[in-house]
Amino acid sequence: MVTTVLFFLLAGVAIACAGLTVYYRNPLYSALSLIGVFISLAVLYLTLAAPFIAITQILVYAGAIMVLVVFVIMLLNLDEERPLNRLKHLYFIGGGLGAAMLAQAFFIFYAVLKTPKHVVDTESNAGSTMSIGTHMYTEYLLPVEIVGVMLLMAIIGAVMLVRKDTHASLEAAAEKETND
């Protein structure tokens, strides 16, 4: 009963915040609404007996990624975006896409509703730290390693993207080194 009430409350908050993310033209307000979505999803994960995922969601999304986004918005001092003028047809494409996806979501809802009820195993410890760690470093070791390599690539890529050294200054540095 409590879970059901919580679900509908949090689902409402998540959908409202997601809508506001798209609605606001000011990027900072969008970012704040998105943080609202992340936090309500984290609480939903708690009701789904996945505390580790819930905390990781807060730590990674709300605590790291969105802080970076807010930092960039503040750093670049972005103001409100201009309205679409050249790309008017995007309104129709976006509306059509949204309608199709909503129809799909309700089709899934209907289809899953019609299937026989699956009994939830409330005794399962699938969300505990121990079980996640055990599976991560035995059964799914290869994906974890690949993700590690990908993170390293992302770090190197990000550093290369934002370094200020221009071609000319690099050449000058190389010349200086050969002269020494």
Binding site: I55, I58, G63
Partner: peptide, 11 residues
Amino acid sequence: LYVLGITSVGV
């Protein structure tokens, strides 16, 4: 992790 996560939101 809970303490780390909540304090990181404090920023």
